[in-house]
Design a protein around this nucleic acid. Structure first.
Lengths: 358, 358
DNA sequence: AGAGCTTTAGCAAACGATTGCCAAAAACCG
DNA sequence: CGGTTTTTGGCAATCGTTTGCTAAAGCTCT
C-alpha cells in the first residue's frame, strides 16, 4: 500500500475513536468501554467522553464493530415475488410495524427483495451468508435458494410472518384466516344465502387454502354441500388483484345459477368485481352480498362500503420482531411455535339478507 | 482474548476465503483477485477457485470487505414522516423501481425510517455517518438532523425523489405537477366549469404548492379570478388522505355557491370525498366533476372511475438510482440538476361538461 | 500511611477481507 | 534453450473497533 502521508488531508469518513480519546484525554479502550458499556467506567470520565464525541460529531463505524464482534445490527425482510400476494394494501403498515419495533431494539431494516427472480435470490443469500444481516423476517412460503446455498441451511434466526412455517421450524405469526372466513360465511348463511361464489387467490397459496377451507367448514357446519360454492379464478397471482375481480365478474355473468353471496380473498379483487357487476345492473347488497379479506382502508369508501376481514398487521409485525429478538438472544433452533392473532370482520353495507326469490 | 482452541468447534459463520484458497490449492490473495477482478487471473485457476467457492458455499464477508475498502454496498431510502404524503398508494411501486435498479448495480436497499421521530433521525444519521450506507435517496423536503449532526454535512451522495431539492445541491427527480394540474384544470374550464373546489394537502408541502399553483395558472390563463377556486383542507397531513376527503365533503355541503368541479391532490381524498357527496345525493360527473392526483390503480374501479394524474414512479425510481450511481462514481458536489418526468392525466368518467344550470 | 478497592492506560491480538510489493514459477516465443 | 511475458505465492500492512490482560493510578477507610 502506498504511503500517502504526503497528501494534504485524507478525505476520510469522519472522526475516529482515537480522535475522541485524544480530545477527552483518555485511552482509546476507555472510550470504547464508555460507549458500549457505560456501567464499567466512571461517570465523570464517561461524561467527558460523551462530550468529546458529541463535539466531534463522532459516529462509530458500524462495519468495523460488526466485523469485530461478528454480528450486525441489521435485520432483513424477505418478501414474496409478487408484492401484492394478498395483503397488497397493507405492505406499508407491515413495514411500519416491523421497522418501529426494530428501531426500538437498535436494529435497522433492510429490504432483501421485492422481486423474486434469480438475481434477488442470490442477493438474499449474500445478505444472509455474508454476515450483513443478523436475522430475517420472511413473508413467503418458500425459502430462497441459489446455487448450492439455501436460507434453510443458514444459522440465521428467522421468523415467518403471515405464513405458517412452523412445520419448517420457523416461529410463525399468522392470523386465523380460516376461522374468520368460516365465521363470515356462517353469517352469510344465517342471512339466508345458499349459493356462493368464491374469488380465489393463486392455487396452492397458503392463504387461499386456509380461506377456502373456512368456507367449506362453514358449509359443512350448516349441512350444505360443497357444491354450494363456485370457485373462481386461482390462475392469476395475487399481484393481479384487480384483474382477478374483472375476470371473475365475466365468469359470474356466465353462470346460469347465480350465487347470492361472494367471498373474495382480497380487497382488490372484491373492489373491481363490484365495479364490474354493478355496471351490468346488479345491485349490492340487494342482489348480491360481498365480503372480502385484508382490511384495506379504501374499503370504507367504496360503493357500497365493503365488508372486509381486517388483519392487525402492525401488531403482527411487532410480534414477529419480538420473536426474532428472542431467537437472536437465545438461538435455540427447534421450538417453533405458531402465534395466531385474530383478524376480525368489519361489517359494512356490502352484505345483507339473501333475496327471497333465490 | 482467551485462547479457545480447546473448544470442540467454533460456531463460526461459514467458510473463509482461506478455506477456499486451501481447497483450490492457491494462495489467498489469488482467491481475492479472482473473485474481485476476474480479468487479472488465469482462466483455469479462476475456474478452479470458483468451483471451490461454490462447493464450500462460500460467501465473502461484506463487513470485512466494506471495512477494508471503506465503502459499503448499501443505499438507504429516507422517507417523510407520514408514509402517505401524497403518493400513499404508490410507495410499493417506488420501492420496487428503486430496488430493482439497485440490485442491477450490486447494491442493497435499506429502509432508513418510516416514522420521523427523534429516534428515527438518529438512526438515519448513524447509518450515514457510521459508514453503513454508500448513498441515500430521500423522499422528503427536510434533511434529517440530530444533535450536532446533519445529513447535509455528510459527504454521502444523495439524490432527492419526488421533491425538488436542487436548490440544496441535490439532484432531484420530480414530475411536472404544476403543469399537469394546469392542463387538467384548463380542460375542466374548456368544459364550461367556472367554480372549483381544491382539496389541499398539508400547507407548505412542496406538492401542494405546485399543484395549487397549477390551478391558479390555469385560471389566470382563462381570465378567471383566483376567487373561482375554494381551497379546502390544508390542516391535515397527507397521511390522513381519506379523512381529508370526508372533511372536505362536509365543507362542500356548507358552501352556498357550489363549485362544479373538484381538483383533489391525492386519490385517497378524492375517493372518500366522492363517496361522501354521493351519499348526500350528488351525481358524479353530472353535478360535479372530479380529477385527482397519484394514479393509484384502484381509481379505475371506483364509482365512477376516477380521473387521475399518474406519475411514472417506477421510472422515476430508476432514474434516481442512476443519478445516485453517477454521484457515487464521481462525487462532484455542485451541479445538481432537476430532472422532470412527465405525469399524465388519465381520463375516466369522473369528469364531464359543467351543468348548464350553474 | 498502608491496605483494599475501583478505575484507567497501554498493549496487542483479533475480526476477514484487500492490496501493494517482490520474488518465484510457469508459460510462451523465436 | 535463453529471454520475455504472464501468472502466482507469500508477506505484511491496513480498515476501525472490541476486548483480555497487566500494571499503574486514584480513591476510600481505618
Amino acid at each position: 500500500m502506498k504511503n500517502n502521508k504526503d497528501l494534504p488531508v485524507e478525505e476520510h469518513s469522519g472522526p475516529l475513536m482515537a480522535d475522541v480519546a485524544r480530545l477527552a484525554g483518555v485511552a482509546i479502550s476507555t472510550v470504547s468501554r464508555a460507549l458500549a458499556n457505560p456501567g464499567r467506567v466512571n461517570e465523570k470520565t464517561r461524561a467527558k467522553i460523551d462530550a468529546a464525541a458529541k463535539h466531534l460529531g463522532y459516529t462509530p463505524n458500524a462495519m468495523a464493530r460488526g466485523l469485530r464482534v461478528g454480528k450486525s445490527n441489521v435485520v432483513m425482510i424477505v418478501l414474496p415475488g409478487s408484492l401484492y400476494y394478498g395483503v397488497s394494501q397493507v405492505i406499508p403498515q407491515v413495514l411500519q410495524g416491523i421497522n418501529r419495533s426494530l428501531s426500538q431494539n437498535g436494529y435497522h431494516l433492510m429490504i432483501a427483495n421485492l422481486d423474486r427472480d434469480e438475481t434477488s435470490e442470490r442477493h438474499i443469500l449474500d445478505l444472509a451468508f455474508g454476515g450483513t444481516v443478523r436475522g430475517a423476517i420472511i413473508l413467503s412460503s418458500d425459502l430462497p435458494v441459489d446455487g448450492g446455498r439455501s436460507l434453510k441451511d443458514s444459522a440465521l434466526p428467522i421468523v415467518s410472518l403471515l405464513f405458517d412455517m412452523s412445520h419448517a421450524a420457523l416461529p410463525s405469526v399468522v392470523t386465523n384466516d380460516r376461522q374468520s372466513v368460516r365465521e363470515a360465511t356462517s353469517e352469510l348463511i344465517a342471512l339466508g344465502h345458499k349459493r356462493f361464489l368464491y374469488l380465489a387467490g393463486p392455487v396452492g397459496n397458503y392463504h387461499d387454502n386456509e380461506r377456502y377451507l373456512g368456507v367449506l367448514e362453514a358449509l359443512a357446519a350448516a349441512g350444505l354441500s360443497e357444491k354450494a360454492v363456485v370457485r373462481s379464478g386461482g390462475t392469476l397471482d395475487y399481484q393481479h388483484g384487480f384483474q382477478i375481480g374483472v375476470a371473475a365478474a365475466a365468469e359470474f355473468a356466465d353462470l346460469t345459477q347465480k350465487p347470492t353471496a361472494v367471498i373474495a380473498t382480497s380487497d382488490d379483487m372484491a373492489i373491481s368485481f363490484m365495479s364490474c357487476v354493478q355496471r351490468t345492473g346488479w345491485k349490492i347488497p340487494e342482489d348480491l352480498s360481498i365480503v372480502s379479506f385484508d382490511g384495506a382502508p379504501v374499503c370504507e369508501y367504496s360503493s357500497p362500503p365493503l365488508s372486509t376481514i381486517e388483519q392487525p398487521v402492525e401488531e403482527m409485525g411487532q410480534l414477529a420482531v419480538s420473536l426474532l429478538m428472542e431467537r437472536i438472544d437465545a438461538p435455540e433452533r427447534g421450538a417453533a411455535a405458531r402465534h395466531v392473532i385474530s383478524s376480525k370482520l368489519i361489517r359494512r353495507e356490502s352484505f345483507g339478507p339473501a333475496r327471497p326469490s333465490s
